[in-house]
């Protein structure tokens, strides 16, 4: 009977996750505020439900791992927008690639040194290092380098939401007034959340931000493991 029970629990988790996600997307469409982004509201609602009904995370993950399993193919799918924008990328290859690469190095080293200097554990340091890339990639990097996947996801949210909150000051301070400078900055630092903001401002800036986001995911996953071993 146990496997059957697991099947029912798993199915219930998946169905309720779909419902919660659908609900938060509908809510976000009505109230476009960064704090109501579907990933934030879905996570909060799910955690509140788990706490109210005293459901252990392990039980939830009986169904959750099935959804988790689709993260890999989702990352593979990011090749498609990169291919779509290939002509734009070709024209501006050097500035976009160089800027994004610098961003990847700055993000890894500053996160690593600041958290090491503050005396945090290696588990935390390895989770904060990939924070500027999109969640599934950051989690995969954290997993291979000895960090914690959920913790990495939280740092990704800090980089995304934090980046959106501070971007008006940063763009002004660094005098980023060209759509390439803005797009590279938003995509490199704040991944999909930053890209969404760029898209709202300007299509071109949004496309550059998409390219920067995907390139950054590739760069950080290539550089982070080596740099971490070298510097930690």
């Amino acid at each position: 009977m146990v496997p059957m029970n697991n099947f029912i629990i798993g199915l219930a988790v998946i169905v309720s996750t779909i419902l919660i996600y659908w609900g938060s997307v509908t809510f976000y469409k009505k109230c476009r505020h960064i704090y109501t982004a579907p990933i934030i509201s879905s996570t909060v609602v799910t955690i509140v439900i788990l706490l109210i009904f005293q459901i252990p995370y392990e039980t939830y993950m009986i169904g959750g791992q099935w959804i988790d399993h689709l993260l890999g193919p989702a990352v593979v799918g990011l090749a498609y927008p990169l291919y779509q924008y290939r002509n734009m990328l070709k024209k501006m290859l050097l500035p976009v690639v160089t800027g994004t690469f610098i961003g990847a190095v700055v993000g890894i080293t500053s996160g690593l040194f600041l958290s090491k200097w503050a005396g945090f554990s290696e588990l935390i340091i390895n989770s904060i290092v990939p924070k500027s890339v999109t969640t599934p990639v950051a989690m995969a990097i954290a997993e291979t380098s000895g960090g914690a996947m959920p913790l990495a996801a939280v740092f990704v949210m800090i980089a995304g939401i934090g980046g959106v909150l501070i971007h008006p000051f940063v763009l002004r301070y660094f005098r980023l007034n060209h759509y390439i400078g803005r797009g590279v900055g938003m995509g490199s630092a704040s991944h999909a959340i930053g890209t969404a903001i760029s898209m709202e401002r300007d299509d071109l800036e949004g496309s550059i931000s998409t390219i920067a986001m995907v390139l950054s995911a590739v760069f950080v996953s290539i550089i982070a493991p080596g740099l971490t071993v070298l510097l930690l």
Binding site: A37, P38, S42, T43, Y57, G64, I67, L70, A74, P136
Partner: peptide, 13 residues
Amino acid sequence: LPFFFIPATVGIV
């Protein structure tokens, strides 16, 4: 995309 990482972010508990 956000749907696929809900279980992972819930892990923050």
